[in-house]
């Protein structure tokens, strides 16, 4: 039997509400409470839908302020709302108000929101994937979202979202990472990036790098992060090429990839630059510092 929610729903919901409280006027707050009371009394799906849409008109779209304590509490539940706008936060909270006991009704209702969502609503919905009840039910929806061409929607799924790494099958996960690289996302913000690295993804990314080179285009240095753990004789030539790049960021990326590898020639290569090996060991060079230098 599947659990309805896979996290401490009450605590998270309370914290989200607390953050909303700190960011909105009394008037908006009482409107949200009113909507909640109406939903609890009548339980109408239409009202649930219309409120979800109407939220932006009530709250506006200011970026929220968030205390470090609340951020930490949410982060402990794998939820990241830094940089959220008020409408998005309130929509996420509203999603948690719909009764989830009846699996079929719940899924149909939430799917209905996806089916008629505007751009901002889509971002709110996909960003809320880790918070939805019946977590196993959203994998196809997530895979569909990865195919979106709307930048904000892609970001909502790919960045600071714990759901994909937790629930997607390998093929869909690889598609997410591949598309994130293709659309130039800051991939260091993908949750579970290293944990879900796999040989199949490494192979696809290596092919992709070769295509870029053949076209005379550059390759995102962060790509080698996903190849590092799988370096063998096939990939080693690529790593050497990147290692020998005049671009220092690429050189660092190659070193980081070698550091993650147990392939003897890669370890040998790294020894050629002991200073850098040392910096990696001391974590003054990390994939995050590489990412920061690209941005």
């Amino acid at each position: 039997m599947e659990n309805v929610y896979h996290y401490d729903r009450y605590k998270v919901c309370d914290t989200l509400y607390k953050v909303i409280e700190q960011n909105v006027t009394e008037q908006v707050l009482s409107w949200l409470q009113q909507q909640k009371a109406r939903l609890e009394e009548a339980g109408s799906i239409l009202q649930f839908n219309l409120t979800f849409t109407a939220i932006s008109r009530q709250t506006g779209k200011q970026v929220i302020s968030l205390s470090p304590e609340d951020a930490a509490l949410l982060a402990a539940n794998n939820i990241f709302i830094q940089g959220y706008t008020l409408d998005r936060l309130a929509r996420v909270w509203w999603l948690l108000q719909f009764p989830a006991d009846d699996r079929e009704v719940y899924i149909k209702t939430i799917e209905g929101l996806f089916d008629a969502a505007d751009m901002n609503e889509l971002a709110a919905l996909y960003g809320a994937l880790p918070l939805l009840a019946w977590p196993g039910a959203w994998t196809a929806r997530t895979a569909e979202g990865i195919r979106s061409n709307i930048g904000t929607v892609q970001d909502a799924i790919m960045l600071e979202n714990a759901y994909p790494a937790e629930y997607l099958q390998e093929a869909a996960w690889n598609q997410l990472v591949m598309k994130a690289i293709f659309t130039e996302k800051p991939i260091h913000r993908i949750i579970g990036l290293d944990r879900r690295a796999n040989p199949q993804l490494a192979a696809v990314l290596s092919d992709y790098a070769h295509e870029r080179w053949a076209a005379g285009r550059t390759v995102n240095p962060q790509l080698w992060r996903l190849i590092g753990p799988f370096i063998d004789q096939t990939y080693f030539a690529d790593i050497e090429r990147v290692w020998n790049s005049e671009n220092n960021i690429e050189h660092e990326a190659a070193a980081l990839a070698c550091f993650a590898s147990s392939y003897a020639p890669a370890r040998e290569l790294l020894k050629k630059h002991p200073g850098m090996q040392d910096e990696i060991a001391r974590q003054t060079i990390t994939w995050d510092t590489v990412a920061a230098r690209i941005a």
């Binding site: 008629a116 969502a117 505007d118 751009m119 061409n149 930048g151």
Partner: peptide, 14 residues
């Protein structure tokens, strides 16, 4: 129709 309306508030807007 639904997809068309969706595109007007989604993809085309983007």
């Amino acid at each position: 129709f639904r997809d068309y309306f969706n595109s007007l508030i989604g993809w085309e807007r983007f």
